[in-house]
Write a protein that binds this DNA or RNA. Structure first.
Length: 597
RNA sequence: GGUCCCGUAGCUCAACUGGAUAGAGCAACUGCCUUCUAAGCAGUAGGUUACAGGUUCGACUCCUGUCGGGAUCACCA
């Protein structure tokens, strides 16, 4: 039973009866009542004031009185300015609650038979993942779960930037300084191992540049002509020409990186349905560009470079293939996009989880695909998110201020272990259980920290302050959940039947319980909004509100001291339902819960 | 310079898409553990929503301008 719908119907019939005016149900504005006023549902009356040439407060009183006389589900009302605040009766609250408690999939929609694709993570293969990647990965993973919750079949994919000058830089440094070392021999994680050589390349490059500058060259000249840079470029050309030795090393080093990434993904609890590699798609993109050239939607300059003119769409001319025939970044993106729609013909659109620095790139990409005649291009969406800044400013790999993902996670596990031990509530945990718990708490802290903020906004991370465990945080929600589980355990142990149904005769429902039921009732709306806005932060903040409301209830109301046995059943069921929504809501954020902490 | 985004308590973020006296957390201060987990709860203090206009019953939200910050406009990715 949908209360808002009932209220709309009731209000329109009230208006019809009082003013002899027909108003559509959807034209009646309803919102939740502000905390300072009595009531839980509020009808806005301002828009009727002109129509009936009457003070909105008076309209509210008339409608309210009509409700009391004609609508028995309405318990009470008050009018403040143009706001008609309403409380419903006990039976309606119980019905509303029963509707939620008896539905194990509360908030989740049935399969729509529609498909879509979400791209996220998609790192370069020359260095390990950092905090920015974590925001990307959690966002992409969470939005995939949320879209699934509203009924889509979701394909999670990556495009791995496995080819290009960046990996050649690591390769040449390894050839020069590696002496046959490997992750196995050195005991390093593969991505960090390869990253080390990327850094070595930069160091050597700088050394050579400084040397040349001393000899009187400009910085630009020095960089272009630095020996190690030329060697890296040479490797790239050899790679393009499929030199077997170079390809062999390339494969070896990329696999080291993938090994490392896989370990990180595993600790993060994310996975992908299909992985695309740029080395396999970039030629495909070139073919599509040539097709467009033949169709005259692109044009070629005298030097053989291929371009698209997007000026009439408010964008610029964009290069698609270089004069030497090699492809640029967008070439492979065109190819990959088309390939994906061929691989998955049923997908309606693709969602690209990529930082906001690439907004222009995606505008251009979608427009090009549209010009090429792909109808789905209009549906594609760039899930753009803001950068993570440090108190000192931007993260810069050159200045070594990048927050390494693996290191951060390790630190968080360490902090959560320390804290948990201090509180001393888990003495019955064995070593394995402890480890699992510390990891869960740490990961929930990091994921929640990154997901609670609106993706569009850039955010700040202070490595010195690390990530909180109190207040609006993952651990706070874990804690609330663990408390509820503890109550449910106890009720089971003392033999209370958790079999609430509509016939259970509850004495009274207090304000804390009403607030909780109200919050539970809006869970489906929150999922819908999160999906349509591509914003997991809606879910995160909602779960926080629900947890707070439950903690308040927990503090004020003693469940087991209650004398009326039916009220106890109701409260146990209420607790169980809150735990269910917390569990499912957090699952949408990709966060696993612990039963005890 | 063109285009786009952002500016809310000391700090980090919300605000149901135009609704009530702008809310939380952190930091500070004050209470609450012989009672279901104190990683909790309650309270005090903290604001001209960058600034100036406009639109209307009503603006953090929409429009215009100004100031401040960021991104982007590569034969880089």
């Amino acid at each position: 039973m949908n209360i808002e719908k009932k209220l709309r119907t009731a209000a329109s019939s009230a208006i019809h009866s009082i003013y002899n005016y027909d108003v559509k149900n959807e034209d009646i504005q309803i919102q939740s009542t502000s905390n300072e006023y009595d009531g839980y549902f509020t009808i806005l009356l301002f828009s009727f004031s002109k129509k009936f040439n009457e003070d909105p407060g008076m309209i509210g009183k008339k409608i309210g009185n009509y409700f009391i006389e004609h609508e028995d589900f309405i318990e009470d009302f008050n009018v403040e300015k143009g706001f008609l605040n309403i409380d419903i009766n006990k039976l309606s609250w119980l019905k509303l609650f029963y509707n939620i408690s008896s539905d194990d999939n509360w908030g989740f929609k049935k399969d729509l038979g529609k498909e879509l694709m979400v791209e996220f993570s998609s790192p370069n293969t020359n260095k390990p993942l950092h905090l920015g990647h974590l925001r990307n990965i959690f966002l992409g993973d969470s939005i995939s779960r949320i879209l699934k919750a509203v009924g889509y079949k979701v394909h999670k994919v990556q495009i791995i930037n496995d080819r290009g000058i960046h990996i050649c830089k690591s390769m040449i440094a390894w050839i020069k300084f590696g002496k046959g070392d490997s992750p196995e021999k050195s005991g390093m994680k593969g991505d960090h191992f390869v990253g080390k050589y990327y850094v070595l390349f930069q160091k050597e490059l700088n050394r050579q540049i400084q040397k040349q500058i001393k000899k009187g060259k400009t910085e630009e000249e020095a960089e272009k002509n630095a020996e190690i840079f030329l060697e890296a470029k040479d490797l790239l050309i050899k790679w393009e020409n499929r030199d077997p030795e170079v390809r062999k090393l390339w494969k070896l080093m990329n696999n080291w990186v993938y090994d490392g990434f896989d370990k990180t993904y595993k600790t993060l609890g994310v996975n992908f349905d299909k992985i695309y590699y740029e080395s396999e798609t970039y030629l495909y993109g070139k073919k599509e560009v040539e097709k467009g050239l033949n169709k005259n939607i692109f044009f070629q300059k005298e030097d053989n470079s291929i371009w698209v003119d997007l000026n009439k769409h408010g964008l610029d001319n964009k290069l698609l293939v270089r004069s030497d025939g090699t492809s640029v970044y967008i070439t492979q993106d065109i190819g990959t996009a088309i390939l994906r729609f061929r691989d998955f013909p049923k997908i309606e659109k693709q969602i690209y989880t990529v930082g906001n620095e690439q907004e222009y790139h995606f505008k251009v990409l979608f427009k090009i695909l549209e010009i090429q005649g792909f109808d789905w291009a209009k549906e594609c969406f760039h899930l753009s998110y803001g950068m993570i800044d440090l108190p000192s400013g931007k993260m810069k790999s050159r200045e070594g201020t990048v927050v390494d993902a693996d290191k951060l996670l390790k630190e968080m596990v360490h902090i959560s272990a320390k804290r948990t031990k201090e509180l001393g509530k888990i003495n019955d945990f064995n070593k394995d259980e402890q480890k699992l718990l510390f990891e869960k708490i740490a990961l929930s802290a990091v994921k929640y920290f990154l997901l609670k903020i609106d993706p569009k906004k850039s955010m700040l991370f202070d490595p010195n302050e690390s990530i909180d465990f109190q207040g609006n945080t993952g651990p706070f929600i874990q804690y609330t959940y663990a408390r509820i589980i503890s109550i449910l355990e106890r009720s089971k142990n003392i033999g209370i039947k958790d079999d609430f149904d509509i016939n259970v005769n509850v004495n009274d429902i207090n304000e804390f319980e009403k607030k909780i039921i109200y919050l539970l009732s809006v869970f489906p709306d929150k999922i819908s909004i999160a999906a349509s806005e591509y914003s997991p932060s809606i879910i995160a903040n909602y779960i926080y509100d629900l947890s707070k409301a439950y903690n308040r209830f927990y503090q004020e109301i003693s469940i087991f001291k209650e004398e009326d046995s039916e009220t106890i059943i109701f409260r146990i069921s209420l607790s169980r339902t809150v735990s269910k929504v917390i569990l499912n809501g957090m699952k949408l954020l990709g966060i696993n819960m612990t039963n005890k902490m």
